[in-house]
Structure formats: structure tokens, C-alpha cells
Amino acid sequence: MNSPFHPPKTVDIVEVAPRDGFQSIHELLPTAGKIQCVQALIDSGITRIEIGSFVSSKAIPQMADIGNIVAAFSDHTGMRFSALVPNLKGADRALASGIKELVFVVSVSETHNQSNVRQSVDSSLDGLKTIADRLRSEKHSVRLRLDLATCFDCPYEGEIQWQQVDAVLGKARNICKGIELEVALCDTTGRATPYQVANHFTRLRERHDSPSLKWAFHGHDTFGMGVANALFAVQHGATTLDASAAGLGGCPFAPGATGNTATEDLIYALQGGHIQTGVNLPLFLVAADAIATLPGGQTASHLRSVPRERVN
């Protein structure tokens, strides 16, 4: 594990505004505008983007044009685009569009999973198995990301213990044997504290660390802990952090959980520890400003309110 005094040299940033952020906006955004936002993120040096979700357009109308958006970036071979898929049908659509990284979500909390996808945790894991089986039959390499929602707190059940996360993760790992897997511990409500994040990562890494498993953290800033939680996650084994430009978005199925951690705030903090992200912060702020102007979006960012001459 990393010493508290020796942070890692690099961290991957996954920009989630085009999925987690855009889907929080009720008013339909024009496809061309979404494409412009994604391009601005790419221009800043971001190399991993959760570009959208292959879900029913009736369930999330904002994602109805995901195929067109993915097609617009088909020639960006150096990028890692991922997409959320709720089931095998969504996975097949994503793979057919050229997506090489699938994201599947299951909640640790039974109550939240029922609210989010209207089925039990075990039923969701059955869905994960169908996708894992599909990926094993793929001729081309496809990465799988498992987002474990409500790893620290549930809006219905309260605090979540690491042992509860361990139970779900253990089942998921058995399902995904032989597949390159990244597991994200998600602070769905933003209630986690840095020490809880450190404890969960430490305990779960003791149980599950292996060369084929990578760790990520997805936090919200509802209680102002987003950046601190992310830094503690990095110090305790996470090599990937999710964040959203301008803090756009949140979880529509978790009451009160508004506001992703702002990517620009997180990048600034990482740079202070000499941790490389590959992102040009001034250029990223240009992208964040554009995303903050989207009609109907809820944003929150500290760095965007600082005079630019002090940032640059």
C-alpha cells in the first residue's frame, strides 16, 4: 500500500459529466452541444470519459442519442470511452457501437437497488453474469467496470459497513473470473468521510487485491467531502477517480445526493501532491465553464469561482 507520505505518481481521471451529469438534466440537450462538450474535455487532456449509457430512452430520454455521440468520436483511438449498461441488451448495443469498456452498476444496499433498478441485489448480479458470459465470447478485448453503489451510506438504510460491500464484491468477483475488472466504490449519497473511505479500501484490498483487479472511487460532494474522500481513496489503493466537470449531476435515485465532485477541484488538489493526471487545468476550466452553462444543470465548483489569474 502507498505510504501516507508517498502518493502515487499518476492517477486516472474518469470524466462522468457526459453520462452522470447530462442525465441529471431534464430538458433534452441538443446532440451537437453534447458533442462539443465532450470534445472540449478531450482537448483538455482527459483520456477517459464515461460517454453515456445504453438504456431505454423511455427511462432516460437524455440518453436517446448515445449512438450518435459515440459515432462522432469513432476515430479517437487514443481515448478510453466507457458506457453504462443496465443489462445484456444494453451491453450488446454498446459493443455494436464500438464501445470497449462497459460499466455495470449494482447497489450494496437491497433497498437502494430496488429503488434504482427495481430488483434484488442477487437479481442484478445475475444480470452481471449474462454480461460477463457475453464478454468471454468476445473476440476483441473489452474491459468491465463494476460500480458498487451505496458502499458507504444508503439513503434508506443508513451507514454501510465494509463487510456488506465485501459480501457483494465476493459474489461479483466469482462471476467475473477471467475478465479484466475495475471495481469502483461509490459514495452515492456523499455522506462518506475520509476515514470511512480509508477503512473500506484497506479492508477490501486485504480481502480482494490481485493483479487482475483495479480499484476506483466515485464520490459526491453533498457534504463537502468529495475531494478529501478522493484523496484518501488514492492514498489507500484507488488508481482511478471519477469526477464531473463543474460538479454537474448526482444520483436521481438517492434523495439529497445532488452534486458530483467537481473535476477541476480534484485536479487542483492532485496537482498539489505532484500527482500527474495528464490534464491541462486551464483548458479544462474552459470545458467546465461550457458545461456549467447547459440549461437545467445543477453545478457546484470551488475552482471556477477563483479568479483565473490565481489558478493559472
Rank of each mutant, 00 (worst) to 15 (best):
C251W: 03
A269Y: 08
I99W: 04
L285F: 06
S24I: 01
V108D: 09
L185R: 10
A269F: 04
A96E: 11
V168R: 11
L95R: 13
S82W: 01
V279T: 01
F253C: 01
R19S: 07
A172N: 05
L146W: 08
I49E: 12
G45W: 13
C251D: 05
D20G: 03
P8Y: 00
I267C: 12
C251F: 01
A172H: 02
A91F: 02
S53Y: 10
A71Q: 13
N229Q: 01
L88E: 07
D65S: 03
S124E: 02
P8Q: 02
Q163A: 12
D209F: 00
L248A: 03
L285H: 10
E101H: 08
L88H: 05
G249F: 07
E182G: 08
D265N: 04
E50K: 00
T261C: 10
Y268F: 15
P194Q: 04
C151H: 06
S109K: 07
P307A: 00
G78W: 11
A64E: 12
A228Q: 05
E157Y: 06
T130E: 15
A262C: 05
V227H: 04
L270P: 10
T150N: 06
Q164W: 05
E157L: 09
R19V: 10
L266Q: 10
S107D: 03
A17V: 02
V168I: 14
R80V: 15
S57D: 01
L185W: 09
L29S: 04
P295N: 09
T77M: 10
L28Y: 02
E206H: 09
I69R: 01
H200E: 00
G250Y: 00
C186T: 14
Q163S: 14
G170K: 06
Q196D: 08
A288D: 11
L213K: 07
I46T: 13
S301R: 04
T258E: 08
R308P: 11
A32P: 08
E157S: 15
Q164V: 02
T188D: 03
T263D: 11
T77P: 00
L270M: 12
A292P: 07
A96I: 01
D166C: 12
Y156F: 14
P155E: 10
N2W: 12
G78A: 08
I131E: 05
L84Q: 10
G296T: 05
E264R: 05
F73I: 00
A40E: 13
G21Y: 07
